[in-house]
Design a protein around this nucleic acid. Structure first.
Lengths: 128, 128
DNA sequence: TTTTGTTTACGAAAACATTCGTAGAATAAA
DNA sequence: TTTATTCTACGAATGTTTTCGTAAACAAAA
């Protein structure tokens, strides 16, 4: 079964980030977090989260008056699909170019680099 | 000097892709290309490209009646900025996770993998 | 209890993106 | 020259996203 495309809007993505990081949350919590980096009204955040729930992106628990929202799409699935898309639309499909760009411009620890090398060795082995 | 954020819309990105690949082009050429994968009217494409020119994303040469459009943003800059953003918003800043996902799910040639390993070795050397 | 604050629901405005019809100018074909 | 085609400009309709004001329900504080 093919998963339907994950295409959150800009605002939706900001909210998803917080939910991925912090788990199920209230509108108040999300809005406070958003306001650390930009001014946004409470009802604005509420509205967007309600729309996300309608769209099926979020679920909500309405047992208590203060609703608790959680993401229906995993960070993994979003990563997979959005990476694929970026690769196709901006990198012309070249994973190598993307990887080099990612490694070259962002500090990675020695350990991380070793892990990546190990992965590459595995991939090479598997293709023999 | 900090470069202003590159944030093309969906349609704009499709057009940029073609310009990056084929170089300066006419509206007709772009529209024909777009129509290989989806139906879109000529004046629609024209309008979007005119708007892109207004925004400064494209330049156009109007010497002849048929205008020639070219991209003002390089594929490299777009790659850099959009990758940074994806990394921050969807991968929580973990380049490792992104790289692993990219390598794991897209066929890369032996040669490419070797080149990536070489890059990693260089990075490790540089940090000593 | 009364007042104050918090939360959801709703609707509508504002901003932005997409689509296309029509008109007029320039060119090409008949 | 006349007709048909191609192109730009323009404006408007449509669709989507973002923003927020207001009202009602509820809860907490005074």
């Amino acid at each position: 079964m093919k998963k339907s495309a994950i295409k959150p809007t800009e605002s939706e993505l900001e909210i998803l980030q917080i939910l991925w990081e912090s788990g199920p949350s209230t509108v108040r919590f999300i809005n406070d977090r958003l306001n650390l980096s930009k001014k946004v009204g409470y009802t604005t955040t509420l509205k967007i989260m309600q729309i996300m729930a309608e769209k099926g992106i979020l679920s909500r628990n309405t047992e208590s008056r203060t609703h608790i929202y959680s993401s229906n799409i995993s960070q993994d699935d979003a990563q997979q699909q959005m990476l694929d898309k970026l690769l196709k639309t901006v990198f012309g499909g070249s994973a190598k170019k993307l990887v080099i760009q990612a490694l070259g411009n962002h500090k990675s620890t020695q350990t991380e680099l070793e892990e990546i090398k190990k992965l590459i060795n595995d991939l090479e082995g598997g293709e023999k």
